[in-house]
């Protein structure tokens, strides 16, 4: 029984996956809605990744869509440009897809590392501006590269992303983020957010951890970009403008910076609800923007600021039994 309680979250995730699949098979959930759900998962990964840098490490990066673009194009490079995997036998296609996602993540994280190393010494808003510029430079550069379709975009990407992969990678992103945050790596990042001088004085190489969190987040965003490209089957550089980065900023701070739960809730809700409001046509974004302003005025720390679902909280490792000191209850 205790075991089941422990694994409750995993069971819920599996059940949710089964329910959505069954609804879809029964025709109660059309492919349009299924696509929205998958986009919500991808947006959740993006928001969680931005949370690592902005929410937990306290840096102010606002060009996350740039990493998504790099990941998307890099993974499409393997499935579409270098190899035409659609013509491969079925058993070889999926491993190649996963490999291409990893390459997307890797490419984004390498660029993240190279960008992070010199720029993370900039403080606060200047870092924000450099990251914004970085995102725009990525977009402008892709427009210049004819090899990947230039401004017209890259079409013909095979549709490998499905509900299963979205579920798996969204789960992995959340699980990875939780474990990162609740480890000495994440705690070092939090200490940088809280007080950089004190952090350095406690023996923490702040530059190293800033670059680490930036690179880690870039990896996640790169994988999300790969999933995105293989879902829409088309990539266009202008999709990844700073407006897209702004969307993720909004998701992050509306949900609550420094709360993984907040990123999950806002990634899902803020993707799905505006789609539900399509019938309002042009007024949809007007209402969205008003709700956003009101939310931030009412709860400046975001919906889940300072809160976390139980599953995402650090594990209590010891209990203090009277004055007998602590004992391990692993």
């Amino acid at each position: 029984m205790n075991y089941l309680k422990d694994k409750k979250v995993y069971i819920i995730i599996v059940l949710l996956y089964i329910i959505i699949t069954v609804l879809n098979k029964l025709g109660l959930l059309n492919s349009y809605l299924l696509q929205i759900i998958m986009l919500a998962g991808i947006n959740t990964i993006m928001t969680v990744s931005l949370n690592i840098v902005n929410g937990f490490t306290g840096q102010f990066s606002i060009g996350q869509a740039g990493f998504m673009a790099i990941g998307g194009y890099a993974s499409a490079l393997f499935t579409t440009i270098l190899f035409n995997t659609s013509s491969w036998p079925a058993y070889a296609q999926i491993p190649m897809f996963i490999f291409s996602l990893m390459m997307g993540g890797l490419a984004a994280s390498i660029i993240g590392f190279l960008i992070g190393l010199p720029t993370l010494r900039l403080k606060g808003d200047y870092l924000a501006i450099v990251t914004l510029s970085f995102g725009e430079v990525v977009r402008a550069s892709i427009r210049l590269i004819d090899y990947v379709g230039g401004p017209r975009g890259l079409a013909g990407i095979p549709r490998y992303t499905n509900l299963f992969w979205v579920f798996l990678f969204t789960f992995l992103a959340i699980y990875g983020a939780r474990n990162f945050v609740n480890s000495s790596f994440g705690r070092a990042c939090i200490s940088i957010r809280e007080n950089e001088v004190a952090s350095e004085t406690m023996g923490i190489d702040t530059t190293k951890y800033k670059v680490l969190s930036f690179t880690f987040a870039a990896f996640m965003a790169g994988v999300a970009g790969g999933l995105f490209g293989h879902l829409l089957m088309f990539l266009q550089p202008d999709t990844f403008s700073f407006l897209k980065s702004n969307d993720y900023l909004v998701f992050l701070y509306a949900g609550g910076a420094g709360s993984i739960s907040g990123s999950i809730v806002s990634g899902l809700v803020l993707t799905i609800v505006p789609e539900m409001l399509r019938f309002m046509a042009n007024w949809r974004i007007v209402i969205y923007s008003l709700v956003l302003v009101m939310l931030m005025l009412k709860r400046p720390e975001g919906l889940y600021g300072g809160k976390e679902f139980k599953w995402l909280k650090p594990k209590k490792r010891t209990v203090i039994a009277g004055n007998k000191g602590a004992e391990i209850t692993n």
Partner: peptide, 13 residues
């Protein structure tokens, strides 16, 4: 940063 998000909201509006 909350003011920055409201600024994005105002911009969208």
């Amino acid at each position: 940063l909350s003011a920055l998000i409201t600024a994005i909201g105002v911009s969208m509006f």
